[in-house]
Design a protein around this nucleic acid. Structure first.
Lengths: 109, 109
DNA sequence: AGTATATTTGGCATAATAGCAAAATAAAAG
DNA sequence: CTTTTATTTTGCTATTATGCCAAATATACT
């Protein structure tokens, strides 16, 4: 495998990894409905301000969201909304996984 | 946030997390061209057999790939090929991220 | 049965993540 | 200018992830 591909795989997996956490995925989904300030995620996710702030930074570094300071608050928004289109396929992965496990039970392995 | 959504966010983020590693993303991309045995990934990724085996298990547990033993070898294949369609959007994330960083340099921050 | 090949599993060391609490910043309000 | 509010950063701890080596399994070959 050449170096170029390796670097590119790293870049792409970084984006997926950023979305690979329940709180960060929640943030992305909520931003799909419009911009939000940090405090709203603190309430929704039920975790510390400092924790939310870190998650937001992971998503920002990955290039998925952007921030804008207005007064005392910082508003975040989705920079690349197409990431939300992943959900349909992900739901399919989960659904077919569940179906297969059902079949397995029927066959007693 | 209700319990149902929380559980669902965990399930969905598990799928994304599984793809959020360069070696596992390489595996998924390769399987997009057809089934492969473990040894092929060992060569391509340049990591230990045991390491590849573990990555394959992560993808399998996530419901993304499946395995089939034939003779001495185990062949893996993509169970839900739509995951490869994520790439276009991910490339967009990377591209616009790079562009923005360019602009930043022009503005000296 | 005995050996070779392909893959998985267990054990272990190291690195990366996640979360909280407390301290630091920044802007607005009094 | 002091206080309050919103957010980020730092320090720390606990948990999880990664990767190698060696051992275990499974199947084919002789």
């Amino acid at each position: 495998m050449d170096e170029r591909r390796k670097t590119y795989l790293e870049a792409k997996s970084r984006v997926l990894k950023a979305l690979g956490h329940p709180t960060r995925l929640l943030i992305a989904e909520e931003l799909g409905r419009g911009e939000r300030c940090v405090c709203e995620f603190v309430d929704m996710a039920g975790v510390d301000y400092s924790t939310v702030s870190r998650h937001l930074n992971v998503l920002k570094q990955a290039g998925i969201i952007e921030d804008e300071k207005r007064g005392k608050q910082v508003f975040y928004s989705l920079r690349v909304p197409c990431v939300l289109s992943f959900m349909e396929c992900i739901e399919q992965v989960i659904r077919t996984g569940a179906e297969d496990r059902m079949k397995m039970i029927g066959q007693d392995q």
